[in-house]
């Protein structure tokens, strides 16, 4: 499938900023089932951009801008060819061993309730992959999914106490729960085709299954990601894969507006 992505993030400041430094995880990498045809990260003010690869193998872009800056827009446009591989990730840069992803973080620490939920759902029966699918479906069934909004820092444990959650929170809950079942799990940030405007990148997750490798799970659909997902960054939690991490030097408040459009192009396979 040929997928077009447009992702705009606009920061507006109540007072001009002297400097802005941001780390952007906005660029997908090629895998066996995802080929980046074109990709552009643009900034609407005088800024210096530097590309690198972080410790997780994600493509990152450092953005340095000097003020006075009243607003800054980071615009991503690109096209990616995808094929469906039933969620199995092949050919991604994997600089870190899967066992690292058993580590828990503040945002993915399971509450006793979430751990009990994972235990009940997995039931100790079936293959590891079946258990993970059951977990994915159970999260999908338990929560009403709401549109993504910019990150508020909700933890998996907090999210589990609610009823309706965005993709980011569902993914963090999966990650937290899978780790309690001794499955290495990580957060994935990217884009998902659904023909609707969104206000944040899409979040899902991957779990490691011996013999198969990293397998994607998307609790929003209750299924594994297919050719409608574009994988951008992975991390131990949503912070580790955040699209934009930034610091500004200057007073006043900021307002962030995000617009994500993901569309299918043409009809080719």
């Amino acid at each position: 499938m040929r997928i077009a992505v447009e992702h705009r993030s606009v920061y507006r400041f109540t007072q001009p900023q002297a400097r802005i430094v941001q780390m952007l995880r906005l660029t997908p990498c090629d895998t066996q089932h995802q080929t980046v045809v074109s990709w552009m990260v643009g900034v609407d003010c005088d800024a210096r951009l530097r590309d690198a690869v972080d410790g997780y193998g994600n493509a990152v872009t450092m953005l340095y801008a000097e003020g006075p800056i009243e607003a800054i827009e980071i615009a991503v446009t690109g096209e990616v060819l995808t094929t469906d591989n039933a969620g199995v990730v092949r050919g991604a840069a994997e600089p870190l061993p899967p066992a690292l992803f058993l580590r828990t973080t503040a945002r993915t620490a399971a509450s006793p309730e979430l751990a009990a939920f994972a235990r009940d759902v997995s039931d100790g029966t079936g293959d590891p992959i079946e258990r993970l699918h059951r977990l994915n479906q159970a999260l999908h069934a338990r929560f009403r999914c709401v549109p993504d909004v910019p990150d508020t820092g909700l933890t998996a444990a907090e999210a589990f106490a609610g009823k309706a959650q965005a993709s980011r929170d569902l993914a963090q809950m999966f990650v937290a729960a899978a780790r309690t079942l001794d499955a290495p799990a990580r957060y994935v940030s990217g884009y998902r085709l659904d023909h609707m405007a969104q206000c944040a990148p899409h979040g899902w997750c991957e779990a490691w299954v011996a013999g198969l490798g990293w397998i994607g799970f998307d609790p929003v659909t209750g299924m594994s990601p297919g050719d409608g997902h574009v994988r951008v960054a992975v991390g131990l939690d949503a912070d580790g894969a955040a699209a934009i991490a930034g610091r500004r030097i200057g007073h006043g408040d900021e307002e962030l507006a995000v617009d994500v459009q993901v569309d299918r192009l043409g009809n080719e396979e």
Binding site: G55, P95, P97, L100, R103, L236
Partner: peptide, 15 residues
Amino acid sequence: ELVLHNEQFRPEVAG
């Protein structure tokens, strides 16, 4: 696991 699960091992600076 002694290394990988240890908070002192910083994946952020791996590589």
